[in-house]
Amino acid sequence: MRADAKKNYEGLLAVAREVIAEQGVDASLRDIARRADVGLATLYRHFPTREALLEALLQKALSDLIARSEILYRSDLPAVALTTWFIEATTFVHVFKGIVDLMAEALADPGSALHEDCKNLRAAGTKLLRSAQQAGVARKDVDGDDLFALIGAAGWIGDQPAFEDRADRLASFIANALMCPPQEGDSAGSS
């Protein structure tokens, strides 16, 4: 890729991230091009469809979140790893307003450009959940699909203006609700 084309590509992604954070996944592509100070044709040359733009934006974010799950899996206690990752995943969902619907659709559609990434993200969370369950610190009645849905629900809460000021607290509450209640005599708790 030529230097100017690479600069346009990276600039478009940076601006798209900002605009989508403000307006959601249905943000105007024309607004993105205008803010990036390029023509709409330049945007379409790099990203022929809205899904192509979202895929480029999300692939890096999703792969970073998947890599983060591996780091947490290897380095932290299972309860800490699961709750930390849950909150980070919820933050990711909140940053990309409206992404919950898109990710749910991508999971249901094997032909979607985001299907594999979303499937891998769900698998990463499931691995952390199973580790915490095997350690006896996470509820056994939750599975990876539930975890993914709870991340989406917690992210949705943050997208709602009426709940935005309490979104982080509620995400932490949901993350902690995944843990087993402390047993009698267990003063340290499980998370």
Rank of each mutant, 00 (worst) to 15 (best):
A154N: 06
F47H: 02
L57W: 01
W156S: 08
L57A: 00
T91I: 06
I157P: 01
I99E: 03
D64I: 03
H115N: 11
A52Y: 13
F47K: 00
A135E: 03
A33G: 08
V137L: 04
A81Q: 02
E164T: 15
T126W: 07
R30C: 02
S190L: 13
W85E: 01
L114P: 04
D145P: 09
L53A: 04
A154V: 05
V38M: 11
A123Q: 13
E18R: 09
D143E: 10
H94W: 09
E116H: 13
I174T: 15
A89K: 07
S63I: 07
A41R: 15
S28Y: 12
G98W: 07
T42C: 06
F148E: 00
R45M: 08
A153N: 04
A36V: 05
A171P: 04
L12Q: 01
D31Q: 14
L114N: 06
R2H: 14
D37N: 14
V15G: 00
F163P: 00
L72W: 06
R166S: 14
D165G: 11
R74N: 12
S191H: 07
L54M: 10
V80K: 13
L72V: 00
A5H: 08
A188K: 12
D76M: 15
C118S: 14
A27I: 04
D101G: 15
L12R: 00
T90P: 03
V142C: 04
K60E: 13
L53P: 02
L170S: 03
T84Y: 08
I174K: 03
L121C: 05
S28N: 09
L13Y: 05
G144D: 03
A79Y: 06
K60A: 12
A124L: 13
V25K: 01
E88Y: 10
K119N: 06
